[in-house]
Structure formats: structure tokens, C-alpha cells
Amino acid sequence: MNSSLQIFIDACLINNFVLAYFLGLCPFLGVSTKTETALRMGAAVIFVMLVASASAYGIHQILVYINAPYLHLISYVVVIASSVQLVEMFIKKFSPTLFRTLGIFLPLITTNCAILGVALFQTNREYDFIESLSFATGAGVGFTLALLMMSGIRERLELSDLSSVAQGAAVTLMVAGVLSMTFMGFAGMGR
């Protein structure tokens, strides 16, 4: 139990997926203009990460059993794409309201490298099933945290007076750099 809590904190704060591993930068830069959409995107990502992590664990067991490690990548990609599709159909059937609020963000999660990153890292580090799930939750919560902070800052940034050269992606990346530096403060927590 202790170790899965450690994995959670490690994935969420110490090695934050966005700010330390640079995974999922596209939605981080693209969807972080409003706090509300950022929160919804985060929730969807956590959910898909959990599904993808659980299925990746199953696939890893099968591939180890039939001794075909070179199929890892291809099968992960296919499974993530189809599980996003499945989640989409599921939500559409059982909660149309939620489906409408998530909108376009749901299919876009397929191309989020953080999801594939979770599947690959948990395989590389040989986590068991519970550890994998806590790793996926930590990564998702960390992603949501970074997205929320960024969107809060960007909402304020819109009102500030910037030189036209700095507007857009340039200043967003600078802010992300400062955020990343603050997250380095968590580095000691691992030991």
C-alpha cells in the first residue's frame, strides 16, 4: 500500500507528466485557456488513463506469455485508440449531458502522448496491477493539476499588457518553465 501511495505522489508531483516528462503538451498548450474546460479535459484524461492502464497491463501479460515483445507498441496504440472509442460510446449512451460537455476533447485524447506514456512507463518499470492503476491515477491527477494552474495563469495573462512579440505560445512556454521550476521543489519528497 505504501509503495502504491509513493508511486501516486511520484507520478503526480515529483515527476509531473507535463512539467517534468513533457508528455501531453499539445492539450496543455491548446486547452489551457479556460479553467472550466481544463477541468473537464483533466477528468476525461484521468478516466481514459485508467482504462488504458488496465488494458495495457492485460496486454503485457499476454505478450509476455506468447513471447512477442516487439508487438508492444502496436498493440498499445490500437488498444488506446479503441478504448477511447469505447469510452466515447459508453458515455454517449449512459450520460448524454457529460458527452456534450466533453465534446471534441474526448476523441482528441487518442493523440495525447501522456496516455501512451503511462502504458509504456508502467511496462518498463514492471509495476503490478494495483501499482499500475495508482500510477495512472497519479499521472492523470498531475496532468489535471498542471492544466488547471496553467489555465488560471493564462486567464490573468489575457488581461495583462504584453508586447506583441511575446504574445501566444512564447509567453505560455516561459510561464510553463516557471511552473516546472516550482515543481522541482517537490524533488526531495521521493526519499
Binding site: F22, A169, A170, T172, L173, M174, G177, S180, M181
Partner: peptide, 12 residues
């Protein structure tokens, strides 16, 4: 990691 964001921001 922080430096990567700064450098890319500077290039942009």
C-alpha cells in the same frame, strides 16, 4: 526540464 521551456520560449 524548466530550461527546456525557457529555451523553446526564447527561440519562439
Amino acid at each position: 526540464p524548466g530550461g527546456a521551456f525557457f529555451v523553446l520560449g526564447a527561440w519562439l
